[in-house]
Computed example of a mutant assay.
Amino acid sequence: MKNNAQTELLHAERKAPQYISTVQPPLFRASTIIFQNTDALFNRHWSDPYDYSYGTHGTPTTFTLSDQIAQIEGGKYCLLAPSGLSAINLVNSCFLSHGDEVWVADNIYGPNMHHLRHLESRYGISVKVYNPMDVESFQPSKRAKLIWLEAAGSVTLEFPDLVGLVNKAKTAHVLTALDNTWGAGLAFNAFDFSEQHLGVDLTIHALTKYPSGGADILMGSVVTQNKELYQQLFQIHALQGICVSGDDSAQIQRSLASMRMRYAHQAESTLKILNWLQQQEPCVQVLHPAAPDSAGHSYWKEVCSSAQSAGLVSVIFKAAYDLTAIRKFCDSLQLFKLGFSWGGPISLVMLYQLNEMRTLESDHLQSGILVRFCIGLEHADDLIADLKQALQHLPLL
Rank of each mutant, 00 (worst) to 15 (best):
K15Y: 04
C94P: 12
Q139H: 08
Y77M: 04
L146P: 06
W276D: 03
R122C: 14
I34W: 11
S194E: 09
Y19T: 10
F317E: 08
M1R: 04
I33G: 04
Q196L: 08
P160E: 10
I326P: 12
L397D: 11
I204C: 12
S126N: 14
G311R: 03
L116G: 04
I69Q: 04
A105S: 14
T171S: 13
I375A: 08
Q280H: 10
Y321D: 06
T38R: 15
K170I: 12
Y299M: 03
S154G: 04
R358V: 06
I273M: 10
G214M: 06
P82N: 06
Q266V: 03
N275T: 14
N3D: 12
T156E: 03
G220N: 03
F188W: 11
V23G: 02
Q334R: 09
L365H: 07
A172Y: 05
I20Q: 11
L9W: 10
Q334I: 09
A169V: 10
S21E: 13
V313R: 04
G220W: 02
T156I: 11
C243K: 07
N43V: 00
F193C: 03
I125R: 00
N37Q: 05
G74Y: 03
E281H: 12
A215R: 12
N189V: 08
L27R: 12
A307W: 06
S47E: 08
K145E: 01
H288D: 04
S31H: 09
R143I: 00
L9R: 15
S309P: 00
H379S: 07
T324G: 02
L85Q: 11
A257R: 12
D39M: 03
P211F: 01
T38F: 10
Y263M: 08
D67V: 00
L338T: 12
P289C: 01
R327S: 09
T171K: 15
E13G: 07
N43M: 11
V155P: 01
M1D: 08
N43S: 13
R358G: 02
Y19V: 10
S306M: 06
D48Y: 09
D382F: 09
A238K: 07
A12N: 04
H98T: 06
N167M: 09
L116W: 05
Y54D: 07
E120C: 05
Q231S: 02
A12F: 02
A190M: 05
F188V: 08
L274K: 11
M219G: 14
L41A: 09
S86R: 01
Y352L: 04
W103Y: 06
D134S: 13
L96C: 02
D248Y: 13
